[in-house]
Simulated scan of single mutants.
Amino acid sequence: MAKVTAAELVAFAKSKLGVPYVYGMKGTVMTLAKYNELKALYGALVWDSDKKKVGKVCCDCSGLISWATGIVRNSQGYRDTALEVHPISTISKAPIGAAVWQKGHIGIYIGNGEYIAEDGSAYGCRKNKLSKASFTHWLILKDIDYTVKEEVDDEMVEQAKLIIDGREFIVDRILKDGVNYIKIRDIADVLGYEVTSKGSIAVLTVEQAKLIIDGREFIVDRILKDGTNYIKIRDIADVLGYEVTSKGSIAVLTKR
């Protein structure tokens, strides 16, 4: 099972703003029987007024993260299994989605000096300023994926599957504004052509270029990245007489 990303954790926390707090709850509907069980287990940590929350989805501070990941830990458990532990004074270096922690309490850092947490029975799940809280550390959690993909102008080179007449090929592509651009050398290899090209730019912009195949000239949309040409797949299909359909990282070309 893939880890929840830091961005997904933050989005999840934002979607739970307003969910009532009850100590020991992990994001499920609290029944009267559950309330009585928790009250017997934890005493004063479960408020008498929490009984009014019966019938509602409730959660506690560590439960908010456990709810997002499906891995149940208490606040101390998150501290003990953290991959990194740093003093809260260095929070400016923390990635979005890091945990903010103090003994007995945990929240989620969302940037701009703010956090989201199930902040106790009086507040429920809320967004608040770190300056108004008492967190002592921030944590890189074992259960969260903090990997950030390298991007250029919000586009990145990734591998995709190209299917031509039923044959499958792995090619490099850039997805820009929902449009696939395929590395021209990969297209040439697939079709059995040699390719030569000139020109390079560092910024990803769509521009028109001339494509010459067997002496025939065509005008196509292309992106130049680090000296490599990426051609709009629909233009390639039109040039070669194919229909093209695409979904996610798979493009399918079939003869008309």
Rank of each mutant, 00 (worst) to 15 (best):
S92F: 13
D177P: 01
K247S: 12
V10Y: 10
E8D: 08
S131C: 04
R73H: 13
M1D: 12
R173S: 05
H137A: 12
D165V: 11
Y115R: 08
I108E: 04
S197L: 03
L253Q: 07
W138F: 10
G227I: 01
V171C: 07
A82V: 08
I212E: 02
I236C: 07
A133L: 03
V244E: 13
L17G: 02
V46Q: 05
G166V: 03
Y146R: 04
R234I: 12
M25A: 13
I110T: 11
G241A: 10
K34T: 15
E194C: 08
L139V: 15
W138H: 06
W101F: 07
I110V: 10
L240P: 05
D177M: 01
S121H: 15
I106S: 03
R173C: 09
E243V: 08
N74A: 09
D80M: 11
K255I: 08
S62C: 11
Y42C: 00
K142S: 11
V157N: 11
A188V: 06
I163C: 12
A11N: 15
K132V: 11
T136P: 10
E217Q: 02
E114V: 07
N36M: 12
I163N: 05
V206I: 14
Y193N: 04
I106G: 02
Q76C: 04
F12A: 09
Y35Q: 00
S75Y: 06
N128I: 04
A202W: 05
T31Y: 09
I174K: 08
I110F: 01
D145H: 08
D235S: 05
G27A: 03
T205D: 11
V46W: 00
G55S: 00
K51E: 14
G241Y: 10
K149C: 03
L83H: 05
P95F: 02
D143K: 03
A99T: 06
T136L: 02
I250T: 15
D153Y: 14
A99H: 03
V19W: 01
L130N: 06
S89F: 04
V19S: 02
L9G: 06
W101I: 06
I110W: 13
C61Y: 09
E114L: 15
L240I: 04
G111L: 01
K183F: 14
E207R: 14
D153L: 04
D80F: 03
A44E: 10
A44V: 12
D165H: 02
G113P: 03
Y181D: 07
I250R: 13
I65R: 11
S15E: 10
S62M: 04
V10W: 09
E37Y: 00
L38S: 05
D214K: 11
G178K: 00
F12P: 07
T136K: 05
I231F: 01
K51W: 02
I219H: 07
M1I: 12
L139W: 14
G104M: 13
S197Y: 15
R185M: 02
W67R: 08
